[in-house]
Design a binder for these strands. Sequence first.
DNA 1: CGGCCGTGTGAAAATCCGGTTACCAATCGG
DNA 2: CCGATTGGTAACCGGATTTTCACACGGCCG
Lengths: 264, 264
Amino acid sequence: MSSSTGTLRVAVLDRDGAFIKVLGNRLDAAGWQHRVLGGIVPVEELVAMKINALVLDMSVLPPEEAWPYLERVCGMLPGLGVIICTNESTVAQRVRGLRLGADDWVAKPCHPEEVMARIEAVVRRRRRRSSDGDERGPLVVGELEIRADQYQAFVAGRSADLTRREFELLQALADAQGSVIERGEVYRRVWGYEMAHGDRSVDVFIRKLRIKLEQLSPSWTYIHTHFGIGYRFDPEPLDPSASGAPASAPAAPAAEPALEPADA
Amino acid sequence: MSSSTGTLRVAVLDRDGAFIKVLGNRLDAAGWQHRVLGGIVPVEELVAMKINALVLDMSVLPPEEAWPYLERVCGMLPGLGVIICTNESTVAQRVRGLRLGADDWVAKPCHPEEVMARIEAVVRRRRRRSSDGDERGPLVVGELEIRADQYQAFVAGRSADLTRREFELLQALADAQGSVIERGEVYRRVWGYEMAHGDRSVDVFIRKLRIKLEQLSPSWTYIHTHFGIGYRFDPEPLDPSASGAPASAPAAPAAEPALEPADA
DNA sequence: CGGCCGTGTGAAAATCCGGTTACCAATCGG
DNA sequence: CCGATTGGTAACCGGATTTTCACACGGCCG
């Protein structure tokens, strides 16, 4: 069955009073958070809303603005589910909208229940991590314990004292277990939209993360740099041989003859 | 960018001759691979088809089978895009289908172009979910293992330590399996724009690649030069007889079958 | 057989990229 | 409203990577 999609955050960009009202009631009944927008909202604001999906009536936008706006929204927020819900339309228009990045196109009049089902279907494919905690079990990697429910990482019960962003970055990296992730992709997953050219935020936060992780777990390396590409998360015990006094030897460093990191 | 969906593999489960025919033509025109199914196909077979999406007409299935089948398919293949395309339906049915895991529901009659746009939209989403690169299995050639998700090539778990360009070059060559590619073409694929006259970058990188590959896999040759034309990627085991003292370089090991069966 | 053109090679020169630090802006709590 | 904390930007540095050169080598053609 519908399997708890949990609580979703939806924005409705429309002016059709009756539709808004009816849909709003249903959304409330389902416990979804929603907000109605009366006209074009800058993409930055959409970002700030941290919504999972946007229901959009193309006809409320000025004709010349509509398509570019749709393109901009979809381009900047690849993780956002976009459902076009408009009165009448031609095949060509629908195709265009879908090609530009919309996920679904429904013709009005439509039943709110169906709109919701379609939102669910769209969001099901890629759930944005929003402010609600997930019931994901604690992930243990190396001597690190990542607790999504706490927005925090621990080692032996001691907190790494990560800020929200730092934690999300860690989680994004850890979720990709073993694979190299490009900067842009990291940014997209953590910040939720496209990274601007020349943005160094990821690097800076990687550094902050590394510092805190190293402070907490000095004998392990977690984040590996792949020059020219991005980062890879992979817990690796640091070889204690060179250092002066590795008080508590981590026993077996011969764990995995895995991949040799590029750095030295 | 949203485009370059590349070539998709689609299965159509329907019996509506006209629809199948028209849609099939469009799919062919777009270069998508497709296959028509006449009735219920076991999920295992769907798995084996390695399709990206399934277009399904619920009405061709026996009424009692339809819903359970849909549920089974969606449950077993969470990565498969499912587009229901059926004659008439009620809101309740559509909601049910979407809740069960379908990604879209289109009413017949519908324009094939729109169906394709919707398939694209669905697949586009699916791809993001499993993060890029994850889908592409590691390519094994000779004793080389090319892992797109690592931006790296391995032999027996050892990394070749390729830089980004080197890796992209390798991938470009390997993608052309067996065919000779002109310098200009190689350059275009890897660097992304037209090669300037007299540019030797490709040669230099070919050399770097050869060195690293030979270091890792001494008994194989991977990149072949075609004088006056370009390069060809083709794993070829080096003749072991001349190992110690290659008295007279027997340049031509005679036969050159296109694809030498790789070991393990 | 000799020369020309295309390719292999090695290394210097020019870029690019990531690490790091300092600093400014926004947000939060009191 | 102030101070503390967090997020984001700018700039500099050092090292990795890419590009450019100059020359050696080898096949191809007249």
